[in-house]
């Protein structure tokens, strides 16, 4: 369990959470992350990292237990799901339209994090997998999120991309959770590492 300052409300709290598809013999998840925490959760393939990430986001429901988290959330899915026929700028404009509040100025900033401005008018489908991953990463910072979940964010990124990601993570005030298998290069993104098994 990781904890920092118990007086401010935690950004994420899991109490005796049992995930969907989890065998009854597997220990329940208990975990707490404070505002501003940056953690890398390492786990082997199939241990349940993506299931946990999706449960935190609300796509899957926990079978039992309590799960609480910050309201504003950014998420980078393992498999980016992007509108391939839409231009990069238009995609971000539509995301802004989806988001509550006035975050219009965020859009250019988020795009600049990963040098997307140069491809603003190109269709997403025309871009390489690496650039699509940059779009996938940039959208997570839209809407001033308090908690950002990154599921294997290093996928398809080149050295420049990894450098940009490292910088963005370092400068972000949000709570950041990265899920990744060991030895993929994600260890260089964040200093605090825990193993998935430590969450139980």
């Amino acid at each position: 369990m990781v904890s920092k300052n118990m007086t401010t409300p935690p950004a994420l709290i899991l109490e005796n959470v049992r995930l969907a598809w989890q065998d009854s013999g597997v220990p329940l998840l208990n975990f707490q992350a404070q505002m501003g925490d940056k953690l890398l959760v390492l786990g082997e393939n199939g241990c349940g990292k993506t299931t946990l990430a999706e449960t935190i986001c609300g796509y899957l429901m926990a079978v039992s237990g309590n799960l609480g988290r910050s309201t504003r959330l950014g998420y980078v899915a393992q498999q980016p799901k992007l509108p391939l026929l839409t231009s990069v700028e238009s995609y971000f404009e539509q995301l802004v339209a989806l988001s509550p509040g006035d975050i219009v100025n965020d859009m250019q900033l988020c795009m600049s994090f990963f040098d997307l401005s140069q491809h603003a008018n190109r269709k997403i489908g025309d871009l390489s997998r690496g650039w699509q991953q940059r779009i996938n990463l940039a959208q997570a910072w839209l809407g001033d999120p308090q908690l950002i979940i990154l599921d294997e964010p290093q996928t398809a990124l080149d050295t420049d991309g990894m450098t940009s990601l490292r910088k963005v993570i370092a400068s972000s005030s949000a709570t950041i959770l990265i899920f990744s298998p060991p030895q993929t290069g994600c260890e260089s993104l964040i200093d605090t590492h825990i193993h998935y098994g430590d969450l139980c």
Binding site: K81, L82, L98
Partner: peptide, 23 residues
């Protein structure tokens, strides 16, 4: 198509008001 493109995920993530999603 929009679900496959992740729009639904965006809707949920951003906790949109009914007004935005009603579009």
């Amino acid at each position: 198509q929009r679900r496959q493109q992740g729009w639904l995920r965006q809707d949920l993530l951003r906790r949109t008001t009914a007004l935005a999603a009603v579009s």
